[in-house]
């Protein structure tokens, strides 16, 4: 066949292969969603949200303890991790800029982002749980904070750098001191981006199981004392799903469904923010 024919054929072949691969990937996503929804919706009821955990076989059992525990652990991690991450990102973008120290921090942060979360859990065990002598909600939050920090740091750094330098110069040219330039002009300009970073950071840690395994451990009952081991949705789901009890397994599916929907909506929200900013 002619040279042109050959090229057209190869073109079509590659296009078919890539489309096929994409569709395989997408079909897995839909398959997962389908399984989650079909099993999870089945197990959903109001009781999930109102009843605490109970031994298997109990009539009134729910996930209230796990939901509250999850909210508390993730909440504390967010309250600590977000300000820290934003301040660190601000330092990198506005003060450190291209200095050796700043670049080193960026590199370390990138490495930490790909650290296995279970390793971070082990670290917190050694540094917090062992000296304390027991598991605690605080230890769980600390582990999640450590995981969240690099994400927010990096996003903040990147988003702040996107703000054009002439905007800063214009504020300085009016006689503004540096901190006001950052707060009144740069933060406002990067608002949407930073918020997206926060959403994505929270979404990431909300689904972690391994680091909580040996920090906050778990509790089958409602506990709001952070000094004690606390229930979390993820670990609870792990326990219930791998148990031999049918009602516990159902609860496990419900937990999986709730968790997935929560993280999915955080991600979608985050992406909507990015689209809105890009579309301006």
């Amino acid at each position: 066949m002619t040279h042109t024919h050959k090229r057209i054929l190869i073109n079509k072949l590659v296009m078919t292969l890539s489309t096929l691969s994409a569709m395989i990937g997408i079909s897995f996503l839909f398959w997962i969603l389908y399984i989650l929804v079909s099993n999870g919706v089945d197990a959903l009821s109001w009781a999930i949200f109102t009843e605490e955990g109970a031994p298997p076989g109990y009539e009134d059992s729910g996930l209230k303890h796990a939901l509250i525990g999850q909210l508390m652990i993730v909440g504390v991690a967010t309250l600590v991790g977000v300000p820290l991450g934003i301040l660190a990102g601000t330092y990198l973008s506005e003060y450190g800029q291209k200095s050796k120290l700043a670049e080193t921090i960026r590199d370390i942060s990138d490495i930490m982002m790909s650290a296995p979360s279970i390793v971070i859990g082990a670290f917190v065990y050694a540094v917090v749980v062992a000296p304390m002598g027991h598991f605690s909600g605080w230890a769980g939050s600390i582990a999640l904070t450590i995981i969240m920090l690099p994400i927010i740091l990096r996003t903040t750094d990147d988003m702040l750098q996107l703000v054009p330098s002439t905007l800063r110069e214009a504020a300085f040219a009016l006689g503004a001191p540096k901190y006001k330039v950052i707060i009144q002009v740069v933060y406002r300009g990067a608002k949407a981006g930073i918020l997206t970073g926060i959403l994505l950071g929270v979404a990431r840690v909300a689904g972690e199981t391994a680091p909580l395994l040996f920090t906050s451990f778990n509790d089958n009952f409602l506990n709001t004392d952070m000094m004690e081991p606390m229930a979390s949705l993820t670990v609870t789901m792990y326990n219930y799903a791998t148990s031999p009890y049918e009602d516990w397994q159902k609860l496990g599916w419900a937990a999986a469904f709730i968790l997935s929907m929560f993280i999915l909506s955080l991600n979608i929200l985050g992406r909507l923010f990015i689209m809105k900013k890009k579309g301006r």
Partner: peptide, 11 residues
């Protein structure tokens, strides 16, 4: 005071 090349309206 200074006026820049690209208009720098604050957000």
């Amino acid at each position: 005071g200074m006026i820049f090349q690209k208009p720098t309206a604050f957000p």
